[in-house]
Amino acid sequence: MAEHGELYTEQVTEFLFSSRPAASRHLTALTRAGLVRRPVYESDRSHQAHYELTGEGIRALADHLRSTGRPVPVALGSLISDHHIVTPFRVGLTAASREGDRGCLYQWMRALDAVARLRARGISHVNPRAYGVWIEGGVAVKFLPHVDNGEPGPISGTPAPPPSRALAGYRQAGKGVLGTAILVITNMDGRESALLRELAEAPLEVAVAATTTDRLGAASSAADAIWLVAGSATKAPVRLVDVPLH
């Protein structure tokens, strides 16, 4: 909750506990202590329990981090952008890591920290939703996930810009791009094919792969074969670990 802003019980279970009852007990205790709240949304038909930190919970966590000599992240407890896509993305990789015969989510960095590291490399005007390292079969993939909403201009209603424009900042990479794969999740018809076509014509120096929210939602995790790689001779979706190889 400190990193994502809001989590379901099932998501808390995947991150921290071995069972849903254990997660429920801890969440109930935190709620009674006033450190966590459970908001209710009239429009939510899933009937899932949502939890987020209260102001008191954020202050208590910040005090604990300071007392142990650890930095307090910026915007602690704030809801992350595109949380409905990014949080399940991370949860799925975390669950896959626990299977034992798959790979391992070795590192995960929040969007604010990822952007700061990119700027240190001279890369600006890009908005990755995180930075992560997935290791599978002895191969480490350093990935930067992006979400393409394909939305028109908020005031003018003008058409959405070409999907590759959001990645143009990576062409400034004088010190190299932080990752070995840029992952783009699209949620509107035609945006995925447009992105792949544009990057085939003007590729980046780093591998770019795309998937749709439908394919991501149907997969057990983002590690599965759901990614289409821009400029690749392979037209079938590939696994996350194979993206930099195409």
Rank of each mutant, 00 (worst) to 15 (best):
D113Y: 12
P145F: 02
C104M: 15
A168F: 14
L178P: 01
V177D: 01
A166Y: 14
V115W: 12
T180Q: 07
R110P: 04
V139S: 05
G174T: 06
A96H: 01
L105P: 02
W134H: 05
F143T: 04
E99A: 09
G169N: 11
A168T: 09
H125P: 10
G179D: 11
A173L: 10
G179L: 05
K142V: 14
L118K: 02
T180V: 06
T87W: 00
T158V: 05
V141Q: 08
S97H: 03
R102A: 07
V115H: 08
N149E: 11
A173R: 08
G179A: 15
P162W: 04
S97L: 06
E99Q: 10
I155R: 06
R117S: 05
H146K: 00
V177C: 10
P145Q: 02
V177L: 07
G179Q: 06
V141H: 11
P162Y: 04
A95L: 10
P154Y: 03
S124D: 15
T158F: 15
G174Y: 15
T158I: 02
R119G: 08
T158R: 14
P152G: 08
P88R: 05
F89K: 00
S124E: 15
P128W: 04
L144E: 11
L93P: 01
N149L: 07
R98D: 03
V115D: 07
Q107H: 13
E151S: 09
K175E: 12
A96D: 07
P163I: 02
I155H: 09
W134T: 01
P145A: 01
W108G: 01
D148N: 11
A114S: 13
G100D: 06
R119E: 15
Q172V: 01
P152H: 09
A114L: 03
W134L: 04
G122S: 12
A140K: 07
G138Q: 02
T94G: 02
A160V: 05
L93T: 05
L178W: 06
T94Y: 00
I155D: 12
P88N: 08
T87R: 05
E99K: 10
E99C: 09
R121E: 13
A111R: 09
V86M: 15
T94H: 00
D113Q: 07
V86C: 03
R117C: 13
G92L: 02
R171F: 09
H125L: 13
S124M: 10
L105F: 05
L112I: 07
A114R: 03
S164A: 14
D101V: 12
V147N: 03
R110G: 08
P145R: 00
G103R: 01
V147H: 10
Y106A: 13
L118A: 04
N127A: 14
K175I: 01
L167P: 12
L144P: 14
V126Y: 13
V177H: 08
S124T: 14
R98N: 04
L178S: 04
V147I: 14
A116N: 10
